[in-house]
Structure formats: structure tokens, C-alpha cells
């Protein structure tokens, strides 16, 4: 029995080692922006492309060391989907604070506003099975319009 465990352990370690033995890494050193995965027959190829930031020209620089939303002085509502979609990945997930660089209050506020917009059917939402849920394909009470009051968000500056 002990020998069997040893063999299994050895195999498991080897499998992990082969998985880690890739020529690319996702760390800050390599600065990889996009990883393209291709499958041709039985061979799986990974390609890493360093892409320039497509939104660089439109970036609004924050002032006085404040976070992006505090310095812009915007009163963001849940219907402002063009602003809220900047804080969401293409899969419909909310970006973490590590990437958005917002202050704690604004990050919580933006997260609630994104959820409101998604529940109101204004933005696409991630389905539990993966992929995106279309707002018009809904059943029961979810197929009717609903709106939200921003005063109900607890995170705010007094």
C-alpha cells in the first residue's frame, strides 16, 4: 500500500512539474497583456502578445493623489452603464481594487452600482455556468423592468 502511495505521489509531482515547465510566466516581469490559446488537433499552443493599452488616449488622469472617481467629482448612477462597464471584465466580473485602484468606499459603491445595473438588465451579467446572460432572456419577475435607488447603497462619504 505504501509503495502504491509512493508511486502515485511521484506521478502527481511529475504531472505538476510538467505543467509548471512553461516558458512564459504571468508575473510582472514579463508584462504580458494577452494570452492566446489555440488548439490544432491534439496540440495545444499558447501565444503571448504584449499589446499597447487601447484606451490610453482617453485616460482621465486623477488629480491630487485621489482615486479616479473622487478626483473626477462625478455623481455616478446605476444607469451610467458606459462608466460602469469600465470596471467589469468581458466575462461580466467586477474588477478587484488591485486593478481599479479606487479607494475603499468608491470600490464598494461601484460594485453595488454594477450589481444594480446588471439586475436592472442594463448590463450583461455572468451566468452561473459561464458565459454571459442576455438581459432580455428572462423569466417570471425578472422579465419586467426594475430600477434602483442609489440612496440604499451603504458605502458613501458623509
Amino acid at each position: 500500500m505504501a509503495a502504491l502511495y509512493r508511486v502515485l505521489n511521484y506521478l502527481g509531482k511529475n504531472v505538476v512539474l510538467t505543467a509548471q515547465n512553461r516558458n512564459i510566466s504571468l508575473s510582472a516581469v514579463t508584462r504580458i497583456k494577452e494570452i492566446i490559446q489555440k488548439k490544432e488537433g491534439n496540440t495545444l499552443t499558447f501565444e503571448a502578445v504584449i499589446k499597447p493599452d487601447p484606451y490610453e488616449g482617453r485616460f482621465l488622469k486623477p488629480k491630487n493623489g485621489a482615486c479616479a472617481i473622487c478626483s473626477s467629482g462625478l455623481d455616478i448612477k446605476h444607469t451610467d452603464v458606459l462608466i460602469l462597464s469600465q470596471f467589469v471584465t468581458s466575462e461580466g466580473n467586477i474588477l478587484p481594487r488591485r486593478i481599479t485602484g479606487l479607494c475603499e468606499t468608491q470600490q464598494k459603491r461601484i460594485s453595488s452600482l454594477i450589481l444594480m445595473a446588471q439586475y436592472a438588465g442594463l448590463m450583461l451579467r455572468r451566468s452561473p455556468k459561464g458565459g454571459l446572460l442576455h438581459p432580455l432572456q428572462k423569466r417570471k419577475w425578472k422579465k419586467f423592468n426594475s430600477y434602483y435607488d442609489e440612496k440604499t447603497i451603504k458605502a458613501r462619504y458623509k
Binding site: L26, K51, D53, E56, R58, F59, L60, L82, Q86, E91
Partner: peptide
């Protein structure tokens, strides 16, 4: 076209992996 006019509030960090 209307989406491209809106200014960006955040900039992705250099090690961010696009999805």
C-alpha cells in the same frame, strides 16, 4: 462610436492580463 467617446477612468496595470 458613442462608447469610444467616453473618457476612461482607470488604466490597467502593466502586468494585467486581458480577458
Amino acid at each position: 462610436e458613442e462608447r469610444d467617446k467616453i473618457p476612461r477612468l482607470i488604466q490597467y496595470p502593466s502586468d494585467y492580463q486581458l480577458k
